[in-house]
């Protein structure tokens, strides 16, 4: 996705066990912050199909 022009950091992966509640909170907060910092997604937003 990054190769195609989606900003680095827009897509993130993590591995969180069901026992790791603190890690889960930490990851969610970090992802939320970094995505907010990137601002709204500009691409792959299709409001209405552009047709004639």
């Amino acid at each position: 996705m990054e190769h195609m022009g989606i900003e680095p950091g827009r897509i993130q992966f993590s591995w969180v066990s069901s026992a790791e509640s603190t890690k889960f909170v930490k990851v969610v907060n970090e992802v939320t912050e970094s995505i907010k910092a990137l601002g709204p997604l500009k691409h792959f937003v299709k409001a209405k199909a552009k047709v004639v």
């Binding site: 996705m1 195609m4 691409h43 792959f44 937003v45 299709k46 199909a49 552009k50 047709v51």
Partner: peptide, 15 residues
């Protein structure tokens, strides 16, 4: 994916 000629749909098909 949409089936028209919208550029988002065309790109979605390809990638």
């Amino acid at each position: 994916v949409g089936k028209g000629q919208d550029t988002t749909d065309i790109r979605t098909f390809h990638f």
